[in-house]
Amino acid sequence: MARTDPQVNIRMPAELKERLEQARKLSNRSLNGEIVNRLALSLDADDVADEAPLPKRELPPGAEIDHGVQVWAERLLKPSNRGELETLLATIRAMLKSAS
């Protein structure tokens, strides 16, 4: 992002700003970068709602997943959601690193 990009000033509830602050720390982004990334992911999701998902892989014997995990997995497997998947993985890595 360049300094020549347009600026947009917005108001948001303090609780939402705090959630964004926490998320940006986990993803090692600026607050602006976190907001821009999340807006882009949201708009990208709208663009790819009708894309076919990648082929599913079989679970190991005895493994079970709940419905919520299944929904997220199907969403993340869409080819154009790679950025969202990479962000999720980076967040999980940061969480694991801070937990150890």
Rank of each mutant, 00 (worst) to 15 (best):
D44T: 05
G68W: 09
A45P: 03
R38Q: 12
D66H: 05
L43V: 13
D66Q: 05
R19N: 09
S100W: 00
R19K: 05
A23L: 06
L31H: 05
A40D: 14
N28Y: 02
R57D: 00
D46K: 13
A23W: 00
E34Y: 02
L39H: 04
S42W: 13
W72N: 00
N28Q: 15
V36E: 06
V48F: 08
A45I: 03
S80P: 01
L85S: 07
L54K: 09
L96A: 06
L89T: 09
A99F: 05
T4E: 08
R24C: 12
G33S: 08
L31E: 09
T87I: 10
D66R: 04
D66S: 05
P53V: 14
V36S: 07
R93A: 14
L26W: 04
T91V: 11
M95N: 12
G62W: 08
R57W: 08
P6W: 07
A49C: 07
V36A: 10
G68M: 01
A52C: 09
D46H: 12
I65N: 01
K17N: 06
R57Q: 08
N81Y: 01
L89D: 02
A63N: 04
E51P: 01
P60I: 11
K17R: 15
A99C: 08
V8L: 15
L26K: 09
L31M: 09
L16T: 13
S80I: 08
A52T: 15
E74A: 10
E34S: 07
N28M: 00
T91Q: 12
D47Q: 13
D46E: 13
